[in-house]
């Protein structure tokens, strides 16, 4: 290990990490919103919309982000739609993440037995109250593990942004290896930076997961 090399690369990695974080979190924030909306639309079968959302979810859950990005970034301009690389990254991550979040959240909603709604209503709660006080807390808590997994999955997926020329961590490492052949240092820094980004998420995720496990009774 050559520490001087590591030091001289540090600013580049920091910049790359910031880009990874920026696009990653923007994409994740949007995908949570998108996923939530889609899940509600699907679960409560909003007319027309739920079909469209269904097609969207199937399309984006069943194709790789890399291909989606290639299509968005290289394919679409051929028919006159040009999107900037960063926007493309956020858009791609949002579309992919939205589809995943929607499914996780929907399966959370579906895991709640109808009897709960019936009991809540028979206790005199309104439909909204039932959703707010009974369904959502349980749905969220039972989809938390999947949510956390999705967030980590999406952050990791940012590594494919290199394909559309975004200078994220993966691209920076590959680029520096190509330029100066300091493979070991570059890969080591890559691992360390991903650890720095993803470890906190993983730790916080599992704490939240434990704290929110109030859906399973009998323990």
């Amino acid at each position: 290990m050559n520490w001087e090399v590591i030091q001289s690369y540090l600013p580049l990695y920091e910049k790359a990490a910031l880009l990874t974080l920026k696009i990653g979190w923007l994409g994740i924030a949007f995908s949570i919103v998108l996923g939530f909306v889609c899940a509600i639309i699907r679960h409560y079968k909003v007319p027309v919309l739920h079909r469209i959302v269904g097609i969207y979810i199937e399309l984006f859950r069943n194709t790789p982000l890399l291909i989606q990005l290639f299509f968005l970034y290289f394919g679409l301009p051929k028919i006159g739609i040009s999107i900037d690389a960063e926007v493309c990254g956020v858009l791609g991550l949002t579309l992919l993440g939205g589809a995943y979040m929607a499914e996780s959240f929907r399966s959370g909603l579906e895991s709640i037995e109808p009897i709960q709604t019936e009991s809540a209503m028979s206790l005199g709660m309104s439909r909204l109250q039932t959703i707010w006080h009974v369904i959502l807390p349980q749905a969220i808590s039972s989809s938390v593990p999947a949510f956390v997994a999705n967030i980590i999955f999406l952050l990791k997926e940012t590594s494919v942004f290199s394909a559309i020329s975004l200078m994220d961590l993966m691209f920076t490492a590959k680029d520096l290896i190509g330029l100066y052949s300091k493979t070991i240092e570059c890969l080591a820094m890559l691992v360390v930076f991903y650890l720095l980004i993803l470890l906190p998420v993983s730790i916080i995720g599992s704490i939240v997961e434990k704290k929110l496990r109030f859906a399973g009774f009998g323990e």
Binding site: K174, D175, I177, G178, L179, S181, T183
Partner: peptide, 9 residues
Amino acid sequence: AANRIEYLQ
């Protein structure tokens, strides 16, 4: 392009 040295090494 960026892989060439790596492939040899």
